[in-house]
């Protein structure tokens, strides 16, 4: 069943075309990958879908509801949440509160009840906290619940960000380079985590990633962007063999990295110097 339909989506910054004519029909519980060189419009796509930017052209409909023009919080509330390329946790808040923040819309008490701590407040807070703790337990973060998020090691911060994105019980999860700055062993664990997440939660996932191994192993379908334009799409097998993709990634030289067995293209390592943890 189709859950998200993006049609002819386009956006530009001061005349510079960042994304154009992007289409995507995402089914429930589907796992789709978006790849492409840096600056090819991948993050712009996420910023448009999650409502940070208002799309210049095209439409995004979620279960038949148009999202263009909606505030990011309403979009999150409807059921699309995301993570960030550069982790954006609430650093000074506890691990538990990071997750509880995302349950904002699930709260069933009024402002007055909050102000007086009466009525539904106490039972609701208890329920919310228990749900958050369950989620943290699933992600192996329960023993860190009271620590400030900034004290977590890098890998756990990524995991917490994912837990936070799932806290609002979304139907679509947008993951922006969750593997950035990770070594092959960590990537292996991340793949397992994502597979497990996919099975455990009723969600469709759109994944932006430079680590080819992740995309190839996880995604049912892949879309390839270059300069904001979709240059290819298909199953991992089709993408692996598409000469256009290989050209974009490797400048025609090395066929093996995409087609072959290597752990990753090396893209994620050369492009930036993120902290390892």
């Amino acid at each position: 069943m189709e859950i998200l339909r993006i049609k002819a989506l386009g956006h530009d910054f001061g005349g510079l075309r960042a994304l154009s004519g992007f289409d995507l029909a995402l089914d429930e519980r589907e796992f789709v990958g978006v790849i492409g060189p840096n600056g090819s419009g991948k993050t712009t796509l996420f910023n448009l879908v999650s409502g940070i930017y208002r799309a210049a052209t095209g439409s995004i409909s979620f279960r038949g509801r148009e999202l263009v023009g909606m505030s990011p919080s309403s979009i999150a509330h409807l059921g699309i949440t995301r993570t960030f390329q550069n982790i954006r946790l609430f650093k000074e808040l506890t691990v538990l509160d990071n997750v509880r923040v995302a349950k904002y819309a699930a709260v069933r008490y009024s402002g007055l009840e909050a102000l007086l701590h009466v009525g539904r407040f106490r039972t609701e807070e208890r329920r919310l906290t228990e749900e958050a703790m369950e989620l943290l337990t699933l992600f192996g973060l329960d023993d860190k619940a009271e620590d400030p998020a900034k004290n977590l090691p890098y890998g756990l911060q990524r995991r917490l960000e994912m837990a936070r994105a799932l806290a609002a019980s979304p139907n679509v999860l947008l993951l922006d380079e969750p593997g950035a700055g990770m070594n092959p062993a960590e990537i292996g664990r991340l793949i397992q985590l994502l597979q497990w997440t996919k099975e455990h939660f009723p969600i469709a996932i759109v994944l932006i990633e430079h680590h080819m191994k992740m995309v190839m192993e996880l995604c049912q379908r892949i879309k390839v962007l270059d300069f904001g334009v979709t240059i290819s799409e298909g199953t991992p097998m089709q993408i692996r063999q598409d000469p256009k993709v290989i050209e974009v990634y490797l400048g025609k030289k090395d066929y093996a990295a995409v087609a072959g067995r290597t752990e990753n293209t090396g893209y994620g390592h050369t492009a930036d110097n993120r902290p390892h943890g």
Partner: peptide
């Protein structure tokens, strides 16, 4: 918690549904 999350990162707060 919404108030605190605005202090920490307003965009992330909004995107978390606040």
């Amino acid at each position: 918690r919404g108030v605190l999350s605005i202090r920490e990162d307003e965009t992330a707060s909004e995107l978390s549904g606040v």
